[in-house]
Design a binder for these strands. Structure first.
Length: 576
RNA sequence: CGGGAUGUAGCUCAGCCUGGUAGAGCACUACGUUCGGGACGUAGGAGUCGGAGGUUCAAAUCCUCUCAUCCCGACCA
């Protein structure tokens, strides 16, 4: 491709709408253009990277024996009514009517459609296992699209679905997909982790997310620094009970006046104690009416996912209303405590381990200090209620947890028979009896990967593409080509040769000043740069520079092609 | 959904408080100079000031409504 024929401008100024670096750079480099909130056009440069990501996915899926299909973006409501998700999916599902007033949706995912295909085509256990995938546009009407293509409403996803005769076979297919994902993301040059995840509303048993580690990520994950390599979504990471036994009581129980000190922070600073010496009490709705109290150490945060799994607690978790709290305790939120409490109580392990702690007195403007379990109130029911924090021991026993942020680029699930039951997708087994197929589901955020790769690979000058997904491998910058016949000739010759040997080369043949070309090539993040100039030709050496390098190398003119082939092969290999 | 903010040239923004002929930089066009790290000069094109209504002799500016976009929040007692 010739840069002179590429009519999309780069921009020096950062567009006001872009907050994260990947979004800023994608707009500045002209990779995408916004059409509406969360909806983007991909320009030729951006599309080249997108296609390379897709191609890696395709190659690895095909190699694993998966079959590519292409399903419709527009789907009839009947299928969604059949699976029950017409009611349950909520406002993220974009619904529309056709001219005959029939209901349709724009697919946010394709479990229904693929299950419909499977029940029509798959009749016998002999046809299993089967694995279908597609790379296709999805639409989810996000509450708040942001960060450019990272959380867009319309986006490209690779979604795959496998069908099995048994749970054992599903497990095998799932394990295979996990390996495939690791290989794909490694090939793309991404630093990522496989992370245990909550199965959430999709249901099913096993589930893992693939997270690209990046500070701008929207997900919080707990990663062990030990040899166990433990990694889990924050929602799921268990907090182990403290090993040391509870200390003995040393202080008397006392009531102190704490006017208007309603938060842990206020109380701690007012009484000149640390937040971890306090206990806070949260009131949530009970599963069958009433309220349930949850006690946490003052410096810890409630984990809603863990709490809503407790017997007697409403799921999904809802905080109790002010009225309900008042009715249960006779006290306003802000001064609640476990002493003399009449409703059911769960206490986090760390709260159970406290001695001589401070908590609300269930009386306006009053707190208790020197509180001790057993002596002042009954031993509580212990539970894991909190989010893990930096430095907690790893649940697998070695090392400690670090809290990192991640961008979810892939998610694999075992769906089991949820959809095949609802939609009667059965095959006959060896005994001739119908069995609902076991399903696996495997997603990858293709467009999001492009943004995630930039979040991980950039500097002040711009993008630094991992070689396998760079829009071009080499940029050939010709200086003063309009005047210099020899520069023009050599540039054209190298351009043709590089294309012949199969290297993606971009020829910067624009009639622009050198500074503009250098700056653009760096903004665009092309891994290898070669400069063709009169100066170079006269000395017999051309300048070469890798995007990550800070100085130029001099390459003899007639070795340029071979050397580029060599560094290119090295670049492709190093990221596998 | 709750809160906050912003809509003025393709982009980044000033002008609004205090109403009186719509601006700058970048980008774009032409010409000239320049030519190895985002050049300079001259000339030029380009905006129904998000939209509608109102107040006024007069509205980008004041008021009302509306649309769009962005940010924060939607456990923390």
């Amino acid at each position: 491709m010739r840069w002179s024929g590429y009519p999309i401008n780069t921009v020096k100024e950062t567009p006001a709408e872009a907050e994260v670096i990947s979004h800023q750079l994608m707009l500045r480099a002209g990779l995408v253009r916004r059409l509406a909130a969360g909806i983007y056009t991909w320009t030729p440069f951006g599309l080249r990277t997108l296609r390379k990501v897709e191609q890696i996915i395709r190659e690895e899926m095909d190699r694993a024996g998966a079959l590519e299909v292409l399903m419709p973006a527009v789907q009839p409501a009947e299928l969604w009514q059949e699976s029950g998700r017409w009611e349950h999916y909520g406002p993220e599902l974009l619904r529309l009517k056709d001219r005959h007033q029939r209901d349709f949706v724009i697919g946010p995912t394709h479990e229904e459609v693929i299950t419909d295909l499977a029940r029509r085509e798959l009749k016998s256990y002999r046809q299993l296992p089967a694995n279908f995938y597609q790379i296709q546009v999805k639409f989810r009407d996000e509450i708040r699209p942001r960060f450019g293509v990272m959380r867009g409403r319309e986006f490209i996803m690779k979604d795959g679905y496998s069908f099995h005769i048994s749970q054992e076979s599903l497990q095998e297919g799932y394990d295979l997909m996990r390996d495939v994902y690791i290989r794909m993301f490694t090939r793309m040059g991404l630093e990522f982790r496989s992370v245990k995840a909550d199965t959430g509303s999709i249901g099913g048993t096993a589930s893992e997310e693939f997270q690209v580690l990046a500070d701008s990520g929207e997900d919080v994950i707990a990663v062990s620094d030990g040899v166990d390599q433990y990694a889990a979504n924050l929602e799921l990471a268990p907090a182990l009970p403290p090993k040391n036994p509870r200390a003995a009581a040393t202080k008397p129980l006392q009531k102190v006046s704490t006017p208007d000190r309603k938060t842990i922070e206020d109380v701690a600073s007012f009484l000149k104690i640390s937040a971890y010496q306090t206990l806070k009490l949260l009131m949530v709705e009970g599963g069958e009416g009433g309220v349930v109290a949850l006690a946490l150490r003052g410096d810890h945060d409630l984990n809603a996912i863990k709490a809503q799994k407790l017997p007697g607690v409403a799921s999904p978790l809802r905080m109790a209303s002010r009225e309900a709290v008042l009715a249960a305790t006779g006290c306003e939120p802000g001064f609640l405590g476990p002493v003399g409490l009449k409703c059911p109580l769960y206490a986090d392990h760390a709260a159970v381990a406290l001695a001589d702690f401070t908590c609300g007195a269930n009386e306006a403007d009053q707190h208790l200090t020197g509180v001790n379990w057993v002596r002042d109130l009954p031993e509580p029911v212990p539970a894991d209620l909190r989010n893990v924090i930096e430095g907690d021991p790893s649940p697998n026993g070695t090392g400690h947890l670090r809290i990192r942020r991640g961008i979810e680029i892939g998610h694999i699930f075992q769906l089991g028979q949820k959809y095949s039951d609802a939609m009667r997708a059965t095959v006959l087994d060896e005994a001739g009896k119908p069995v609902a197929m076991y399903m696996g589901c495997y997603g990858i955020g293709v467009t999001r990967i492009v943004a995630a790769a930039i979040e991980q690979n950039h500097d002040t000058a711009g993008i630094i593409w991992p070689e396998p997904i760079a829009p071009f491998t080499v940029v050939l910058i010709s200086l003063n080509a309009t005047k210099s016949e020899k520069v023009r000739k050599l540039s054209e010759q190298l351009y043709a040769t590089l294309q012949q040997v199969g290297i993606d080369v971009l020829l910067d043949d624009r009639d622009a000043r050198p500074g503009v070309k250098f700056a653009d090539s760096e903004l665009m993040g092309i891994p290898h740069r070669l400069v063709v100039s009169d100066r170079g030709i006269d000395s017999g050496q051309l300048e070469y520079r890798h995007r990550r390098a800070t100085v130029n190398a001099q390459w003899p003119v007639d070795e340029v092609v071979n050397r580029l082939l060599a560094v290119h092969q090295r670049g492709e290999r190093s990221s596998r």
